[in-house]
Write a protein that binds this DNA or RNA. Structure first.
Lengths: 182, 182
DNA sequence: CATGAACTGTTATAAAGTAACAATGGTCAC
DNA sequence: GTGACCATTGTTACTTTATAACAGTTCATG
């Protein structure tokens, strides 16, 4: 758990550029972005006849509130703390729902999960995205990635390989953790 | 788990187009490419004072022979079958050696490992690479990826995020499996 | 209300990875 | 050579991550 860590660093003007959903490492109003994301998930569920049941809702809220990649078992602990059923399948089922509907992503590198911050337009089905993952605080930033990098596409084409999904995850240190490390 | 357990390679024609080290989905002579790769690992070890001990050597050979991504426990079974010590740490240590020296890669998407097919020049230290992974037969093709995709680099720059490592893995169906599925 | 599809609750277990520590063995200074 | 040191091994035990299986419940529909 990292959290706290009030603004710090001269780079941080507290201005919050509107659509900065892709840059969670920049200072912003967590509560506000979580609310927005939640609202667009609700809207998408309503539009598509999906049921945002209590377990699913709880897991989504946890992910949005933490703004980090969380493991299934961290989420399970949160469920238990809230007095909800907390066997592994509970959380894995909720995560499967969220991931397959594009409301969250699995971060392969970490075996963990993060809420999608792409905004309403993308909250459709599983979509392409690339991630910046801080190896220290585990905060995750997401950016849209419309198509595979060219060298990969070329290689696939040459080999007759049909790309179905591309995982792009950059691991490193966010500005805050880098400052803190000094 | 997919557990196709294909044993693969039975279908391989032994036609060998030149040095297509990056295109393992094209038909080629497995035995030959494995020998080459093995030779360059040995050369790199000799040059850099690394010890290719029996466990390391065995794991490398398994990976090269299969030309697939293999899980640690598949490798462990192979060790056991060969009458070698086969507790998990044995294989994880061998894999750590191979991966950290650039002789193999961890395929994050699968929690599995594949021998590096970049050729001698890259067999230095852990290097950047992108992968094509067939979800059916688990064969893996590797290509050099000199730097992160631009959109990721831009996002990182804007956020003051220091990228240390990039995972790029494309999952899909290779030509052979696609044909077989029809 | 009957029905079927989706979802939940639960037990049990599989698969993947790590900690810790004593024992071994190769290399180098002396 | 010998002693010291470091990398490597062998092993036990354990943690973390994920899935199978199945009975019970809910809920939108006919």
């Amino acid at each position: 758990m990292v959290t706290s860590r009030t603004t710090t660093s001269g780079t941080a003007t507290s201005a919050t550029p509107g659509g900065a959903a892709t840059a969670s490492f920049e200072p912003h109003d967590h509560a506000h972005c979580a609310e927005d994301a939640r609202a667009s998930v609700e809207a998408a569920c309503a539009a598509r006849g999906l049921r945002l049941t209590p377990a699913r809702s709880f897991v989504l809220d946890e992910l949005l509130a933490s703004h980090r990649a969380m493991t299934a078992y961290e989420l399970l602990d949160a469920l238990a703390a809230a007095g909800m059923p907390s066997q592994p399948p509970v959380v894995y089922r909720a995560l499967e729902f969220l991931v397959s509907n594009g409301f969250a992503h699995r971060i392969e590198r970490l075996g963990a999960f993060a809420a999608c911050t792409c905004g309403p337009q993308a909250s459709g089905t599983a979509h392409r995205a690339a991630f910046l993952i801080c190896r220290d605080c585990r905060h995750v930033a997401e950016t849209a990635m419309s198509r595979p990098p060219r060298s990969l596409a070329e290689m696939a084409g040459a080999a007759g390989f049909a790309i179905e999904r591309v995982v792009i995850e950059a691991e490193g240190l966010c500005a805050r953790c880098r400052d803190a490390a000094q």
